[in-house]
């Protein structure tokens, strides 16, 4: 059992948990993830480390409510316990690339982008952040990014123009690339966002890595559920990734595999909501 020490709500659907996990905290690196099994009947689902503290013995992850497990987790409060927490899993993000970096996070991907940006800053890199969200209320971790980076290194876009610049992350990316302001790009978010970021970076010959999020079961390279096609080869995202050269990723394949359980996921959520609906009690 893993105790939730703190719960923070960022927006209607986005939460952060700080969980007691001393051994994990000692070994976590930016870009790695953990797997949660909320309770005895729960599914194993991956979340990226948002932060960790080896001295105090905790790890943090940020999640967006999208289905049954995340809905259920959102009801957990500080003091409650999560049945199982496994990690760190996956390879840390490779930050050896020289020069200035552009870190792009879309939606809940910002939770994954933030620790990468923080680590890059800590290791002496110049970092630009492009923060994308559908609308202002869904923009995560703005304060954290602002305290990390200079004002002119933060680029915000919203699809509906409710905040920052109207549009998608590729517009500021294109400007940065045109101005030769960045030498490396890291992106994480929805598949279309990563795909178009990748095409943009490729146009300028700038290396770009993407943190991929296929469905996982064990997260330890045993089952093969998380396979992705990169450069014509099959890779296991949980042990070979989750970061890959974005220009080589087969995005259609990733999207199809992510969507493989849509029907069942809908069923699970519906059953859960019916069982927990206030009007039924």
């Amino acid at each position: 059992m893993y105790k939730i020490l703190e719960k923070t709500q960022f927006s209607e659907k986005v939460f952060e948990f700080r969980v007691e996990a001393p051994e994990m905290a000692k070994h976590a690196h930016a870009g790695q993830f953990l797997m949660v099994r909320a309770n005895e009947t729960g599914e194993r689902v991956p979340f990226t480390f948002a932060d960790w503290n080896a001295e105090e013995g905790w790890v943090e992850f940020i999640f967006m409510v999208v289905g049954k497990t995340t809905e259920m987790l959102s009801k957990y409060e500080a003091g409650d316990e999560i049945e199982d927490l496994t990690g760190p899993l996956g390879q840390p993000t490779d930050m050896s690339g020289k020069g200035a970096w552009c870190v792009i996070g879309g939606g809940v991907g910002l939770a994954i982008a933030y620790p990468v940006a923080r680590q890059l800053v800590a290791t002496g890199h110049e970092v630009h952040a492009i923060m994308g969200a559908r609308t202002k209320d869904l923009l995560l971790l703005e304060e954290q990014f602002r305290s990390l980076l200079p004002e002119d290194h933060i680029h915000i876009t919203t699809d509906d123009g409710s905040y920052g610049e109207k549009g998608v992350v590729t517009a500021p990316l294109e400007r940065l690339l045109q101005a030769k302001a960045v030498d490396q790009v890291f992106c994480v978010g929805p598949v279309p966002m990563m795909k178009f970021s990748s095409l943009t970076a490729e146009k300028y010959g700038t290396p770009i890595t993407a943190s991929l999020n296929p469905i996982m079961v064990d997260g330890t390279g045993m089952c093969g559920c998380c396979r992705v096609e990169v450069g014509g080869e099959t890779k296991f995202a949980c042990v070979d990734g989750p970061d890959f050269d974005a220009t080589k990723v087969d995005w259609n394949d990733l999207r199809a595999r992510q969507a493989a359980y849509r029907t069942e996921e809908g069923q699970a959520l519906k059953a859960y909501e019916e069982a927990n609906c206030a009007c039924q009690r």
Binding site: G42, E43, T69, C223, A260, E264, Q267, A268
Partner: peptide
């Protein structure tokens, strides 16, 4: 694994689905 460990045969009583 989906069936033996995660009990997907008992979905949706257990959360892990299978085909």
């Amino acid at each position: 694994t989906r069936v033996n460990l995660m009990k997907a045969n008992k979905f949706p009583q257990y959360d892990t689905p299978t085909k």
